[in-house]
Design a protein around this nucleic acid. Structure first.
Lengths: 197, 197, 197, 197
DNA sequence: CATGAATGAGACTTCATTCAT
DNA sequence: CATGAATGAAGTCTCATTCAT
């Protein structure tokens, strides 16, 4: 935990403003002028920190995803069973959606960017996320905690449920207790994939 | 089934071209010129049928969603149990994803349009779809087929799984037998929500 | 000699305006807006005919050089001796400088363009011009009309003199009779390179 | 020869860097940043010594031309005949082109600067140079060394040849012995203008 | 004095929309 | 009706210049 340099502070300031404007207007409808104004700086200053609009967007997304995965990691440490892991995954996801609703909207909805580099990179992230989850589920099957099923289909179910939570939470401001929601969904999922003794 | 007027034929021609171009390039990167060329007509002619780019997009989406729901309806007629309905829902969805992969991409991914009217309308569609599904699930709970659970949470799980299927099918060209996939997912979902006797 | 299409007419209109503005302001200080205004059209219209500012400049130059060389060719037909050729070269050059003073300025002075393609292309033109002249001079040496001398050095002298004429003609509006000037310079040059019997 | 003050040293440092960058990139494509970096100083420091980019360019050119004329003067002292003067003029010019190829390029090619003050000043320099040469030639005519001819036309020929030398020397790196080249050109010129007894 | 972060005027370019043919 | 040439608003990005440190 080290102090941020002034450059990093302003960089973050711009990223914050970019997050705000991009999430409100979407990539194409956001203008560099708006972002500059939102950051309380001049238009040209952004270009001192980011080479182009698309790079600003990409790096804002990167920071957001990094935060997201970091927040999930913190939840997932020391979990033993698949059930616990899914529960903590859901809990982390719900908390993150609530705390960073704007960012979540961008990451899970606004994925429409035509820049091929960004697109490929986001696809890559999605695959990685899936692969990590699938590995956990495969281990669960091997240990006998989960029943014999195509692990990729299990993965689809879990990621699908996770992805579908953000909309009511962020768009509708769904007011439901985090733990209760995580419990209920974990319950449905686990009944679906658990090995019935 | 009545014969289409010449106006309707050309209108559909434009909508087809719009679907092709929008789905390949996304809303903002598609130009009216490209769409006109893809339709084999002049740029100005589009404006004889659609007032603006955003309205063309919206009406193309509307036609697509109408087709989607129509295709689901046809699958769902005369189904009795919730299990059958979910299975047919999945089957219809998978078939539609495969047959109209471009459209699916637009409807489930490219939702980034800032025009408020379109946005609200798409949100409305989502809510309606959810509401219809939730009603089916509630009836299943009432009839004892499904166990006592928050029906909205059940809805979330089902819609989430459905939404997550399109990506591997459309983006990765996942080659899996429709019925097998529908069976497997239905199985997981139903184990999760079925009333265990 | 065929009638020009409307597209070609407007293309020429834009090239004329470009010539006017570029020659008055130079490449970098000329704006597309000015050129459009000078042509009496909208800014965007230029881009219907030319892909970019640099291409407009390049094609304006190309048309100018084509006109220049064509005008020299017409002068040079049917000349027999080197003396006659140099005289007609000078005459053509002087006439062209007077008639297309703006263009001449661009071709002979404003050569400062950083676009590498244009630069290489202009260098190429210069080399070709030199090579053609040098060949004539070499033939003059072979035929005995000119004395034994390094033909490249002769070429340098002739091109140097030619290039230096435009400045007083164009910049200072030097009022001197074309034939008299051509005669006088030809005389000086020919004394310098003629084989003294 | 007096010691330079620290201010003058840094001023020269900046002018050197400006010469390097301007000659490589041209006026408009050179940036103050590059010049500062090339000089190893901060961007703002340039403005302690020069009021603006255009003034930096102008003063760099002025220093260059001053050096050029000084170098010619040194060659021309104590020359008696016109032939000797032209020969030494050529010799000095060739040497300068070789030693300061970058500067030469700027002075003889990159003349495209639209700032009226600089433009007028460079025109002024050109006129002065011409006038000085014309005076020498007029004296040659009066003394009978040169034949009766319009002295301005003679001047044109001489300046033209001089101006045309730089391109092969600087651009093509023409490898030719200085004295041989000066001799050959002087020979051609003098045959052209000398009074034939 | 020296610096370089900040600025914003201004340039090029795109493209939805119009309208004369 | 159909067209596509013409348009100009609007957006991204550059860079000379300023000024607080």
């Amino acid at each position: 935990m080290q102090a941020k340099s002034p450059k990093e502070i302003k960089r973050d300031l711009i990223l914050d403003a970019a997050l705000k404007v991009f999430s409100e207007k979407g990539y194409h409808n956001a203008t560099m002028n708006e972002i500059a104004t939102a950051a309380g700086i001049g238009k040209g200053t952004i270009y001192e920190y980011f080479a182009s609009k698309i790079q600003l967007f990409q790096q804002m997304l990167a920071r957001g995803l990094y935060t997201y995965f970091e927040s999930l990691e913190m939840q997932n440490l020391r979990r033993k069973t698949v059930e616990e892991m899914i529960h903590s995954l859901l809990e982390g996801h719900i908390l993150f959606c609530r705390q960073h609703s704007r960012l979540t909207r961008l990451v899970f909805w606004d994925t429409q960017v035509q820049d091929d580099e960004v697109k490929d990179w986001m696809l890559q992230m999605r695959k990685e996320k899936e692969a990590r989850l699938q590995k956990i589920l495969e281990e669960g099957i091997a240990s006998g905690e989960l029943r014999q099923q195509d692990p990729y289909i299990m993965t689809l179910v879990v990621t699908g449920v996770i992805a579908s939570i953000w909309a009511p939470l962020v768009l509708d401001g769904w007011d439901i207790e985090t733990n209760y929601l995580a419990d209920a969904i974990t319950d449905v999922i686990m009944r679906g994939i658990r090995n019935q003794v």
